[in-house]
């Protein structure tokens, strides 16, 4: 009877690859999620300290960042190891803070200017002297809402 072909003998049936794209997408998503994107290239090394009483920073568009810390390894030969201030993408001094505040304000909707927060991302090894200078300049610029960027932890150790 030739109507019924003899089943192929030997060899397993091929594995279905229909779900392969799904798996690939899943992996892709995973990597996309875990990747952290930065808006600025950091020229200073910033490892923020940890604290317990932290608030979340809301309204990201109203937050401007000031980075303080020692220059990164590759820039140390050029700029030394003393703590530096970084505004946007460049090193700055405390004299530039007022101009920085003004330019940030100009980019913001005038109605929302009072809600602006200046977040200080400071390395935990930095000295308070430079931080205080920045704070005094912020006061002069009337930017009084500030935030010390910290990670969250459950307990403070001595």
């Amino acid at each position: 009877m030739s109507k019924f072909k003899k089943k192929k003998s030997g060899g397993q049936p091929a594995i279905s690859t229909a779900s392969l794209p799904d798996i690939v997408f899943m992996l892709l998503f995973f990597f996309m999620v875990t990747t952290v994107m930065r808006e600025v290239t950091l020229k200073v090394e910033v490892k923020t300290p940890k604290a317990t009483e932290v608030n979340k920073l809301e309204r990201k568009s109203l937050v401007s960042y000031i980075y303080i810390g020692a220059p990164i390894k590759s820039l140390q030969s050029q700029f030394g190891t003393a703590d530096r201030i970084q505004l946007n993408d460049a090193f700055a001094t405390e004299k530039d803070i007022i101009a920085f505040v003004e330019s940030e304000r100009e980019q913001t909707n005038p109605v929302e200017v009072p809600l602006m927060t200046f977040s200080m991302k400071v390395d935990k090894a930095a000295e308070m002297g430079i931080v205080t200078d920045v704070k005094q300049e912020l006061r002069k610029a009337n930017a009084l809402k500030i935030n010390y960027s910290t990670g969250k932890t459950d307990k403070i150790v001595d």
């Binding site: 996309m32 920073l57 009337n142």
Partner: peptide, 26 residues
């Protein structure tokens, strides 16, 4: 969908936390 999820994820990523303080006026 991929693009959609990409943008969804990137906008809410790394939540910034910190101690919020108010400076005294000049």
């Amino acid at each position: 969908f991929l693009l959609l999820i990409f943008f969804l994820v990137t906008t809410t990523m790394d939540v910034d936390t910190g101690l919020t303080r108010k400076l005294p006026p000049p």
